[in-house]
Write a protein that binds this DNA or RNA. Structure first.
Length: 292
DNA sequence: AGATGATCCTGTATGC
DNA sequence: TGCATACAGGATCATC
């Protein structure tokens, strides 16, 4: 899924409902999701703990637990979902997997649920993941620090200054723009959709080498990153395939995409057909006229 | 160093 | 209709 705007949307939604919840039980239906712990170890370690906060680093959701200062780290990878069912709510499978099971939303309810958290007040949190790439880890404070250190600039933090951004880019002069935008150790949170959208918003081709970027272009790039991410968060993220919000509703940013998924369609600004190529191993979209 | 492909999975879209 | 192939919001690892 899930790039920064989608994880940030989930963070904000879950931060309103999870703090104060006490873990009553945890059910794991796909053990690899919680590896290296066994499902039993994972469940026992969480049992009785209280959620105190929900935060985010890069594309990783961090759920703080007490006692013990543990962090439940969740990565949704390509198809992960987190659905919250308030106390007393009736489960609605159609809302959970609407984009996966096209015309038959209720045919196979919860087919892709891998982990279920039951809280003492009767509310629940479901982790669904079609492709099983996502993971949940229980980390002590020290390992959380590693997660923070292993990632680069947070584009929506005060740290993301032009000076810091330029310095980060300067480390890899020979790499292409697309590749650098996808590198989580340089900028944290961009994925394939937003790397392409940001490049379009900045008027730069994803194929450009970092060393060819002028000071002005770097400035435009930084602005584009902030603008695109902010707007996407405002719309609750992009539901292009499996991603949904914590209540099962789709995000609304798909309607605002300018290049991603629009190969062959006319550019909304100049009419030229959007081009799709393969770059850094990923489908890459751009407007051959608007992007230099 | 950087580019490429395979890998972890399951499902959908396409082309013949 | 059936079948094969490519591709999909991520990230890591081996190889050239």
């Amino acid at each position: 899924m899930p790039e920064l705007p989608e994880v940030e949307t989930l963070k904000r939604e879950l931060a309103r409902v999870l703090p104060g919840r006490v873990v009553k039980s945890v059910k794991i239906t796909w053990p690899k999701t919680v590896a290296p712990l066994t499902p039993r170890q994972f469940a026992i370690r969480l049992h009785g703990r209280i959620i105190t906060a929900v935060s985010r680093r890069a594309k990783i959701l961090l759920i703080s637990l007490t006692p013990g200062q543990l962090i439940l780290a969740i990565h949704l990878k390509m198809t992960g979902q987190l659905i919250y069912y308030p106390q007393g709510s009736t489960l609605k499978p159609a809302k959970v997997e609407p984009l996966i099971i096209g015309g038959h939303p209720q045919a196979r309810p919860f087919r892709y649920t891998r982990v279920i958290f039951n809280f003492t007040d009767g509310s629940r949190l479901y982790f669904n993941d079609l492709r099983k790439f996502g993971w949940l880890k229980i980390l002590p404070a020290g390992e959380v620090r590693q997660i923070h250190e292993q990632h680069g600039l947070e584009p929506l933090s005060a740290n993301f200054t032009l000076k810091n951004f330029a310095a980060a880019l300067k480390r890899y002069p020979r790499r292409r723009l697309k590749q650098i935008l996808l590198d989580q150790t340089v900028i944290a949170g961009l994925g394939n959709i937003y790397a392409d959208e940001v490049s379009f918003a900045a008027g730069l081709r994803p194929t450009r080498h970092v060393k060819t970027l002028s000071a002005n272009e770097m400035k435009k790039l930084r602005r584009a990153i902030k603008k695109v991410l902010r707007r996407a968060i405002k719309k609750g993220g992009t539901s292009s395939r499996n991603y949904v919000r914590s209540d099962g509703a789709p995000g609304g940013f798909a309607a605002y995409l300018k290049v991603y998924g629009r190969a062959g369609k006319p550019c909304q600004y100049c009419g030229q057909p959007i081009v799709k190529i393969k770059l850094a191993g990923r489908g890459t979209h751009f407007c051959p006229r608007c992007q230099k």
